[in-house]
């Protein structure tokens, strides 16, 4: 598998797709950082912004993975790997690790401009070093779990264009729906009612009433699971110190394990024609 991984990395280094993704990611990040400073010159808590911005390179990783691994099918080079005696599992895992390495490099390229601006210009940080490190860990795990999904799609859908369309549409949908899920979950379960005396001069009693707008029961559990399991939800919570963020890497690990196991199992039975 090491040889396959090295071959993949060697191809990635020279790949026009990867270099284009890298350049576009870095340029867009630089423009975005510039606009962000222009809009709000007094931005505080730059470390939180760096963590929140990690959502964007997921799209770059998706584009890279789908285009890069799709070439194996379109050029039929995937059969060469099998002919020289590599097992399907080895091919799958070599591609998975390549996708993760590519995804992390793209994330680094995306984070470089805001990090430089944050460290040398803004110099305003809201999180402690440990908390920031945990946030970074959450983001890295979220990217790894996203890459496992991209690898699954690119290895199981032969048509590169269809695979790309499906993944881009799913990622855009997940990205768009995440703030809505966050807002739904943020609605308080109860609200406080103060009852005044007859002339309205003093509060007689204060009691709590269930909030009819709050999501409860099974729908809440489903929304929480969707929020914790999908990469954009995890990244949105990466800087949230009010919750137990140590759970999030475990959620990523769960998604990673299930998608990889399912992908590798189906790929072993796939007719490669």
């Amino acid at each position: 598998m090491i040889k396959l991984l090295l071959a993949n990395l060697c191809r990635m280094k020279r790949s026009r797709i990867f270099i284009t993704c890298l350049c576009v990611t870095f340029t867009l990040s630089a423009i975005f950082t510039y606009i962000l400073i222009k809009i709000s010159p007094t931005l505080a808590g730059w470390d939180k912004i760096i963590l929140a911005m990690t959502a964007a390179p997921i799209f770059a990783s998706a584009a890279f993975s789908m285009l890069f691994f799709g070439e194996d099918y379109s050029d039929k080079t995937i059969r060469n790997k099998l002919i020289i005696g590599r097992s399907r599992t080895e091919i799958y895992f070599a591609n998975l690790f390549t996708a993760i390495i590519g995804g992390l490099i793209l994330t680094f390229a995306w984070e470089l401009p805001p990090a430089v601006v944050g460290i040398f210009v803004i110099k305003d940080f809201a999180l402690s070093a440990e908390s920031f490190a945990l946030g970074i860990l959450v983001c890295v795990c979220a990217i790894a779990s996203a890459c496992s999904i991209f690898t699954l799609a690119s290895m199981l859908i032969v048509k590169r264009s269809s695979a790309t369309a499906v993944v881009i549409a799913l990622m855009a949908g997940a990205f768009a729906v995440t703030p809505t899920i966050k807002n739904k979950l943020a609605v308080p379960q109860t609200f406080e009612i103060s009852e005044c005396n007859a002339d309205g001069t003093a509060v007689e009693r204060v009691f709590e009433e269930p909030n009819p707008d709050a999501v409860t029961g099974f729908p809440r559990a489903a929304l929480e699971a969707a929020y914790d399991l999908q990469p954009f939800g995890q990244i949105k919570q990466a800087d949230d110190e009010t919750r137990d963020r140590a759970v999030l890497p475990l959620c990523s690990l769960g998604v990673f394990t299930i998608s990889t196991a399912a992908g590798a199992a189906i790929f072993r039975r796939k007719d490669l024609k």
Binding site: V24, L28, I35, I39, F59, A63, M66, L67, G70, R160, S161, A163, T164, A165, I168, A172
Partner: peptide
Amino acid sequence: NKASVIVWAALITTDVLFLSQY
């Protein structure tokens, strides 16, 4: 290349949307 067009279309659409919002 169909797949490349999909990626570029999605990227440009998203960027233009953000630019228009700004």
